[in-house]
Every structure is written in structure tokens, then in C-alpha cells.
């Protein structure tokens, strides 16, 4: 797997005001930590970071480039990214320093390939997981795990134990959880209800009654015991 490079710089004061000033200047505040080091506050260019955080390469191995000796040449993976709720801009990033000789646990995205048999019959391919946790050496982190769904019929499921991994990559799981399935086709409710209404009007009225009842349920309960909730 190829290693990307990311230019970063150390930042001094770790205050809210300074973090906001960094964001206004087009940088993203971040932090670097690892199993055998104290945390270091840093900053990276927003544009450069966004380019590295593509859908495929989220937890790839990155080599830091910096003028600060504490950061220069460190191998990291992106541990966490915080986004702004409305704009989606990156607010903060967590880097985790890895030892190239020791296996690490990372989340790797799944890529579904092929057209499922069930989809041809009108079913809906439903990924139950978007990424899975694997353990491997940092230099062997796969870019994605390919899942061939072409044999999946409606209601068929692929479990994590059935996935194919390259040598050196081991999935981490306690229970053999499902990864992807094909749901049966959804049927639009409205056209089915319309003929029934025409054919049997009283029946439609009866069907409406429980819905109205459900909505008015709290009202009825309140009426039965008016003293209680008012207190």
C-alpha cells in the first residue's frame, strides 16, 4: 500500500480562540497521540487534509512532513474527524502514531462489486455495515475490502466470516455479524388502498378509526384521570 504524505505544523496555545483563528485562516487544528508518546497539538491545511480524507483512503497510512522534529517522519493513521453540523467542514482531526512493526486495529471500508441476483428481481441491496474492523501491520492496511454480491438472492446474507482478506489482514469480531443483504422489493401502499376504498367504503372508514384512536389516546387517558398530570 502506498503511503501518503501530509504537511503539518506544531501549534502552541491550545485554546478555543486559537482554534477558531486557525479555522478562519484555512487550517484545521488537530492532535497527535500514540501508545508511547505525550499528545502534541498540531495544525494542517484544510484543503490538503480534505484531499487525504476521501471515501476510500480514510484510514490509510500517512507520513507526516513538518519542520518540527517531534512530528517529522512520523507514521500516523487518522483516528477521528469532527465535522461542522451544517456545512460539513472539518473542525478537528485526531492522528494516531503507529509503530510499523506492530499490528494495529483499523476500520476499512467495504466495496460491493457485482450486481446481485436479488436486485435483478426487484430487491434492494442493503449494506448492513459500511466498514469493518481489521487488524494488520500498518504497511498492509488495505484500501478497501471487496465484497462480491453477485450471488446474493433476496433475503440472502453475507457474514463477516465469509469475506476474503489478503494475507496478513485479520478481521476483528466476536459474533459473526451480517455485512450485506438483499431486501425484498417495497410495494407502494397508496395504489393498493385506492381500489379498496372504492369497493368497500365502510371498511375504509373502519380502518381510519384505529389511527384516530391512536392519536387521541393520551387525550382519552387524561380524560379518565384529569387530576393526575395537572399536578
Amino acid at each position: 500500500m502506498e503511503t501518503a504524505e501530509l504537511v503539518c505544523d506544531q501549534r502552541g496555545v491550545r485554546s478555543k480562540g486559537q482554534a477558531r483563528a486557525l479555522r478562519r485562516a484555512g487550517d484545521v487544528p488537530g492532535i497527535l497521540y500514540g501508545p508511547a508518546r505525550p499528545a502534541i497539538a498540531l495544525k494542517v491545511s484544510s484543503d490538503e487534509l480534505a484531499a487525504h480524507l476521501g471515501a476510500i483512503s480514510h484510514q490509510r497510512l500517512i507520513r507526516l512532513r513538518s519542520q518540527a522534529p517531534e512530528l517529522e517522519g512520523k507514521y500516523i493513521i487518522v483516528k477521528d474527524v469532527q465535522h461542522a453540523p451544517v456545512s460539513g467542514a472539518i473542525l478537528h482531526v485526531d492522528f494516531y502514531e503507529v509503530d510499523l512493526g506492530k499490528p494495529v486495529g483499523v476500520s476499512v471500508p467495504l466495496r460491493f462489486s457485482g450486481r446481485a441476483v436479488g436486485v435483478g428481481l426487484g430487491g434492494i441491496l442493503q449494506p448492513l455495515e459500511r466498514e469493518i474492523k481489521v487488524e494488520c501491520l500498518p504497511l498492509e492496511i488495505p484500501e478497501f475490502i471487496e465484497v462480491d454480491v453477485s450471488a446474493l438472492g433476496i433475503h440472502d446474507v453475507i457474514h463477516v466470516s465469509e469475506l476474503q482478506f489478503t494475507s496478513g489482514v485479520r478481521p476483528v469480531f466476536e459474533t459473526d455479524y451480517p455485512v450485506v443483504t438483499v431486501l425484498p422489493p417495497t410495494v407502494e401502499a397508496a395504489p393498493a388502498a385506492a381500489p379498496a376504498e372504492v369497493a368497500a367504503a365502510p371498511e375504509a372508514g373502519a380502518a381510519e378509526a384505529p389511527a384516530a384512536e391512536a392519536e387521541g389516546e393520551p387525550k382519552g387517558k387524561e380524560a379518565a384521570a384529569p387530576g393526575g398530570p395537572k399536578k
Binding site: A214, K219, P229
Partner: peptide, 27 residues
């Protein structure tokens, strides 16, 4: 229509909605 099945109190004060979401903003 969506509605709670049962509630403890049937009327609630109006309240104000302020700020931006801190949860439920990611797919």
C-alpha cells in the same frame, strides 16, 4: 402519521429552538 403511542403529559410548554444540531447530523 407519526405520533407517540402514549405520553406522560398531554400538553407541553412551547419552548424555543436555538443553535445548531449536535446530534443526528451525519448520515
Amino acid at each position: 402519521m407519526l405520533a407517540p403511542k402514549r405520553v406522560k403529559y398531554r400538553k407541553m410548554q412551547k419552548g424555543r429552538v436555538r443553535g445548531v444540531e449536535s446530534r443526528g447530523f451525519e448520515m
